[in-house]
Write a protein that binds this DNA or RNA. Structure first.
Lengths: 210, 210
DNA sequence: ACTTAAACTCAACACGCGTTTATATTCGTT
DNA sequence: AACGAATATAAACGCGTGTTGAGTTTAAGT
């Protein structure tokens, strides 16, 4: 099955897939909506209307709301790069670089932050999103901490812990909207949070287990 | 208006309010459901069925889904006490006591943790919940830190920051379900997180601003 | 010209939701 | 016994949802 009529020269017949401009428009609208309103509150009809497209076209390109959401959620490479480079350089200042990386990822350019916000908002309601966010929290810092200190069994735990705490900070600022935290500027937050994260990722010897 | 038929002795007529057993059953079922499934995924019909009650009775006792949710979310006094007492004692060990208080509040007895879980899960979708959680994050630690250190302008910020981070930890463990963090036992988490929180709430002098 | 498939439009379906209305039953009070 | 409020039951309403299918138009191939 799935056989396609071919000419003698083996080329497919019929109209060729055009510019994917419509698909792109839908994807853009979906990313914005999911990031702003969350998974449940976002409707396919609304996305379609935002993209000036019929709702059934959305279903044609992406096969369901879940698949559309999954397509929106993937973490942009530019964000991954942000975290990778955060670990370059000496232990000294590690906490600050990591905190900055988190804040920048979630508060930087819309193309970067929207998928992350969608992931964050969706994680409570959508299984796909919570798995993805769990992966993110669990593994993102691992590369950075690996080989940095004596490789105890709790290096991974430390990485996950720091990550979860920083995600909590972002949630409070951007999702819940705690006034005190939303209002505070990046510099103040970095100043306070950086030493704490440093303490977790590269603790002084007297706090370590082994 | 709202006048009620009264007898000559001024007492109201008609059947008196009975035991509130049904209302209580609904409230219990709702608390469990909201905590487990979140606001949107929880339906009134399901709550009613859990409580062996007709859905329209739920509407009679609580006037809407939102009001029912609000009734469920209030933070239990026993939890508030937990935080109050966490700040008794010396600066030394403050971080550990606070971390323990958070973990215990969210992982202790169901009567304590369910409203908090409902609040957490609801905060993404329900305005009421996010306001309540914002209040919680912003103010819970304030009492504890007040008067503890020189009362800089950023004492409140430090309190909110620590709170948001610990909430992030709880979200990762209990809502998102990051395997690494869910699996880890309380002792390990306290050991790693306590110094970081201590660093935020009662930082060494060289990290402070004023 | 004719065929094929992609892109698009329109209308409808089935379902579950929060909520309302109407009606029946219980039961303390007069 | 009669009343009236508290409580319970049953059926339905209106709406928005994700999703489907049928039909039309457009573009690329022979």
């Amino acid at each position: 099955m799935n056989a396609q009529e071919t000419t003698s020269s083996g080329r497919p017949r019929g109209r060729r897939p055009g510019t994917q401009s419509t698909r792109k428009a839908v994807l853009d609208a979906a990313r914005k909506r999911f990031a702003a309103d969350g998974f449940t509150a976002t409707t396919i009809r609304r996305i379609a209307s935002d993209a000036n497209v019929d709702a059934s076209q959305v279903m044609q390109f992406f096969r369901s709301k879940d698949e559309l959401f999954a397509a929106v959620m993937s973490i942009p490479p530019s964000v991954l790069g942000l975290f990778d480079t955060a670990f370059d350089g000496p232990d000294n200042g590690l906490g600050e670089r990591v905190v900055r990386a988190y804040l920048q990822a979630w508060e930087g350019a819309p193309e970067d932050s929207e998928p992350l916000m969608a992931m964050l908002r969706g994680a409570i309601v959508n299984n796909n999103a919570s798995t993805q966010l769990a992966d993110f929290i669990q593994s993102r810092l691992l590369d950075g901490t690996r080989g940095r200190a004596a490789d105890d069994s709790d290096t991974a735990l430390r990485a996950g812990l720091a990550s979860s705490m920083l995600v909590g900070l972002v949630i409070s600022r951007r999702v819940i909207g705690v006034p005190l935290l939303s209002r505070a500027d990046t510099a103040a937050i970095v100043r306070i949070a950086a030493p704490a994260i440093q303490e977790i990722l590269a603790p002084p010897a007297n706090n370590r287990t082994s």
